[in-house]
Design a protein around this nucleic acid. Structure first.
Lengths: 331, 331
DNA sequence: CTGTTAGCGCTTTCAT
DNA sequence: ATGAAAGCGCTAACAG
């Protein structure tokens, strides 16, 4: 059956035979309401199934929407869904709700989402920014609601951000491959403009140098946006003239693609990857993984955001979370 | 720096030297605004960084919040995050936004979330219901906003739902194990009260019977709420007096747990599981998986919801999505 | 084409 | 202890 209009405080007041202010007092559990009056109101509320309109409440001066916006690339990617999970944990602790939007790493979409969120008067924003320059967007919108960036700092702005220790993680992973005797280590990455990729590439270069290996531009392949794309790229890297004998995968999607490619090509190529991937420990081949507490990434970002919402001033804060390298699989 | 109060139409009107209604007309792209006036308003909007307050707009009669609520068990579980992804796709197509809440399969939390969502005047609700009886909750809240249930129909109500073909899927998977020569097939499941488990168990039983195997209560273990719990249970099933020689895992978490247990115990036990799991195809052992288009599950539910929001009446609709069985891994 | 007005559902003085 | 009234930011008649 079609839905009915929700009853208002006015309706409740009529049924209970009191004024709206009294209903408001009961709903907000204020003192100075006669027990009898209170129970009549409570009864009316139950009878009508009244649910206070939060949007109307939020309209009053000094009131907030109790809502946080989260903009990520793709909720179906385990990395981002873990962030969402951590964010939601904290957001709920604070009695707020989470509005989620997928940007698909497209700046236009991100911009639309963030603006829409501000129009809905969220109390704060958690954003995994796209690679685009955020100078304008950030300065334009951060006046209205505090913004904390997750996983990477936006281009062109100094702003609050909670990130991973990208370079150190990459160094350890690539170093592992070097020590294992690999000499031509390919790099597979996603969007070349995303800053995490740069940092991980820097780590890759540093580890190569430390291992006495020369950097070869031909071994670096950015621009793979899905696991499938990464699979093709890696197959090429392994089979083609580049003759890679190992792969460092930039993120979880790249790792999945690389695993498939290596299996397809049937080589003994070494593999290391950033982010954890489920079931990697059960694979027949060893794989070095740079892991981290992704849920915590979301949690920390949300905590920092609520700090700002509570009024904490001061310069932009940057929190960097540790990563660990571990070798899984190859049982 | 702390955030400022957002400018209102009144502010824009003052700056542009017009009335609020003119500002409203410009913002809503209505006709009958003189080009000059329009540009003065547009300028003022840009100057102030005005963003229309959607909550205030939604308050007007006949207006909607353009928001959909989604309640799932845990966004970090790939099954649910895929649903969220599908839902968001459709929600966005309709110009709405998605508020997400994790129930953790706890009825109290679910109830709180759904009520809170109604208080925020969402236009509709997408819910993966807990096992608890929903008769009261559904009849109480579905008057105010249409509700479509995802993955399972709630207990105690006839309501719109988009579900999977649980029984048939389980039959095929277990049948695969039977044909492979397994004789003592264990069943590992999650919450015993969730209806999907019942249907999958029914399929399990049917496949056993068809294969001439006797049903043994001792081989059925519900109540595993994490992959880790499932791992312990499966290890017990394989090692203990039950002497299972194969496992049917109820859902993706159970499958992951079972895989770990089997590796730990180092048996040749057969394995089949409901839901897909990433990288299963690269595992050294074959595994029969009941797969489905999870994103589509979310999409279909959202479409059905928007149908109802648009006013479509009629009896509760039940959509059942096909599942497929395929054997992965064991390369 | 533009302004005035009323009112959406709620909270919050201010009286009583 | 309770009610009347104003107003949050916006839209939608209704005038002009």
């Amino acid at each position: 059956m079609p839905t009915q209009p929700t009853p208002t405080m006015h309706d409740v007041a009529r049924v209970a035979g009191v004024s709206v202010s009294t209903v408001s007092r009961v709903v907000n559990n204020e003192r100075y309401v006669h027990p009898d009056t209170r129970s009549r109101v409570v009864e009316a509320i139950a009878e009508l199934g009244f649910q206070r309109n939060e949007a109307a409440r939020a309209l009053r001066p000094g009131q907030t929407s109790d809502t946080i916006g989260l903009v990520i690339a793709d909720i179906a990617n385990p990395f981002f869904s873990a962030i969402a999970r951590g964010a939601e944990d904290v957001v709920r602790e604070h009695g707020h709700m989470l509005i989620v939007g997928n940007s698909g790493l497209d700046f236009e979409r991100e911009r639309d989402l963030v603006q829409e969120l501000v129009r809905r008067r969220v109390d704060g924003l958690l954003v995994v920014p796209t690679a685009h320059d955020h100078a304008d967007l950030h300065t334009e919108l951060s006046r209205w609601a505090p913004i904390v960036y997750v996983d990477r700092a936006p281009r062109g702005v100094r702003a609050d951000a909670v990130v991973l220790d990208n370079k150190a993680g990459a160094v350890r992973a690539v170093d592992y491959l070097v020590r294992a005797g690999h000499r031509r280590i390919g790099y597979v990455g996603g969007d070349p403009a995303v800053v995490t990729g740069h940092h991980r590439l820097a780590g890759y270069k540093q580890a190569l140098k430390a291992g006495g290996l020369e950097f070869d531009e031909a071994l670096v392949r950015f621009g793979n946006h899905t696991a499938e794309a990464a699979e093709e790229t890696v197959a090429e890297l392994l089979n083609g003239p580049t003759k890679a004998d190992a792969i460092f995968a930039d993120n979880n999607r790249m790792t999945v693609g690389a695993l498939h490619a290596i299996r397809r090509v049937r080589t003994e190529a070494g593999l290391a990857g950033f982010d954890d991937v489920e079931l990697a420990d059960l694979l027949p081949r060893p794989i070095a993984l740079v892991t981290h507490d992704t849920i915590e990434l979301g949690r920390r970002a949300a905590r920092l955001l609520f700090d700002r919402i509570a009024g904490s001033a001061g310069p932009p804060r940057r929190i960097t979370l540790r990563t660990r390298m571990l070798v899984r699989g190859g049982s």
